[in-house]
Each structure stands twice: as structure tokens, then as C-alpha cells.
Design a binder for these strands. Sequence first.
DNA 1: CCAATATAGATGCAGATGCATCTACCTTGG
DNA 2: CCAAGGTAGATGCATCTGCATCTATATTGG
Lengths: 146, 146
Amino acid sequence: MITPDPQTTRIWTSLLNTGQALLEGIESELKNNNLPRLGWYDVLLEIEKAGPNGIRPYELKERLLLPQYGLSRMLGRIAEAGLITREEVENDGRGQTIKLTPKGLAIREAMWPIYAEMLVNSIQDKLSKSEAAELERILRKLGAGS
Amino acid sequence: MITPDPQTTRIWTSLLNTGQALLEGIESELKNNNLPRLGWYDVLLEIEKAGPNGIRPYELKERLLLPQYGLSRMLGRIAEAGLITREEVENDGRGQTIKLTPKGLAIREAMWPIYAEMLVNSIQDKLSKSEAAELERILRKLGAGS
DNA sequence: CCAATATAGATGCAGATGCATCTACCTTGG
DNA sequence: CCAAGGTAGATGCATCTGCATCTATATTGG
């Protein structure tokens, strides 16, 4: 039977734990500042990047690799909070166009400094330049051709 | 304002994505084989390691770093599935002792080959020995003194 | 033109998680 | 001995996720 090297197991657990710990740290900082969860950040940013014409949910889904039902409900909650609007689409009766509201933009911008500071403190400051490069390279290898 | 190096952001996203992808891969393999989720594995293994005298939930909580309420409910579900028993404790009327049933042991053992194979395929085989060592070292640095 | 099929998005249901709180029991200081 | 505080574990509530399925519209092959 195939048995992984103990090192492999250690890598696996610390990969998962490290990611989780960082995530929880960021989430908790956001919550302390009465800001939405990190998941919203990516969505808001992606909508913002799409520009004033807005973006269709299915495009968001593809770009962010979110499951369709998850995105659908998240957009519902984000819209509920007044951070986006959902408009009907001209030539496709099934679809909708998502646009950022000023409030949505403001919230996204308010999240960034907190997010950024956590990234710097928890990752950047802990690694040398060469370690960072090495880590990036190895993670890319792990992700590739899964 | 503090702004992370783009490299830092890339590391963060691929750290999270890689971990998520591996996790989903393993979970999905387990599900394909009608086996429980990975979360149960750790719990079952820890109970198994505790030996025939069983283990108290609060010890499990400490060893696995699970939130108390999460563990409590998870033990409920695992017991429901007949994989563990919960007995009263002699000298502590508040507590209970968790023991693995034969079925619990069997399930844990059935999960391992699948888990193991995924670890080998998704991590071990993708990295050279030195990359693995380097990754382990760097992850440890990231986790330390958070 | 239209039946079959595909696509966009929503939703009912079950399971899981976080948070706060609750109950029951135990320990300790006066 | 007992009141106050601590510890073990459970649970109500809201939120979130996965899965399957549903509705509505669009596209396509005959």
C-alpha cells in the first residue's frame, strides 16, 4: 500500500493549518472593524475591476471559481447590504448585471488596509525575499496540473 | 499606507487555493467511496491513539484545536453513525469517555489508503526531496509566532 | 418554425459553523 | 460546610455550504 513520507504529512497539515490560521486572523480583524468577510472582498474587487458597465454573475463565477449557487446567494446578501445593484440585461432575459454602489466601493476600500496589513505582517515580514520566491515557486508547482 | 508586495498577494492566494484544492480533492475521493469527511479522520485517529481507555472530549479539543461546540456536535454525529461510544466518567460527573467501536476503527482504516494516495499523488510526487524540505521549513516559519 | 437541449440564475433541504448561552458538576476559599 | 467561581459539555439561533433541482430564457438541429 502506498504510504506517504511523514514529511509529506507534515507539509499537508501545516499547509492547511497555516492557511486556516492566516484566514482566521484576517477574518477576525475585519470583523473587529465591522467589515464584511474576506469572501466579499474578492467579489467586490472583481466587480470593481469590471468597470462601470458591471459584470454578469456567470463571469464572476468563472473568474473567482465560486460554485454557482454560492455566488448566487452571496450576491443576494451583498445586494441586501446595499453594496451592489442587480439590473436586468437587455438582450438576455435570463441574466442580470451586477454593479458596485458607492457604498460597495467604500466598503471594499475600507477593507483593503486591514487585509493588506495582515498580509504584510503575517507573510511578507516573516519571509526573506528568496524564501518568498521559493515558496511561490513551490506552491505553483503544487497547484499545477492537479 | 502599508501595501503588500504583489508577490505576497500571490503567495497568499496560492497558499489558500492550493490547500483548498487538495482538501476538496481528498474530500471528493472519500465521498466517492462512501466514507466520512476528513474531519472525522483526525478525530477517529486521535481516539484510536488514545488506546482502549478512551479519551475525554476536552482532550480531543486540545489536541486537534477544535472549537468546543464543533467537537461536541461532531462527536454526536460520529456516535450517531456508530463509530464511537460515549460513556460516563467515574469520578467526574460532567465528563464522558469516548471510545472507538470496531466499526469506527474499520472506517478509519478504510479512509487511510485513499487519504494516503491523495497525499502522495498531490504533494509527494510533485516535489523533489529538497523542495519538500524547503517547503516544510518555510511553512513552519509562517506558522511560528503568529 | 419548433422540439430538444443548453445556459443563467434561484432555491428547498440537509449538514456544518460561529457565537452566545445554558446546564450540570466540580473546586476552592472563607 | 457552602457560596462563588471554574470546567465539561450541550444547544438555540443565525449564517453558510453542498447538492439537487427548479424556473425561465436562449440556442440549435431538423
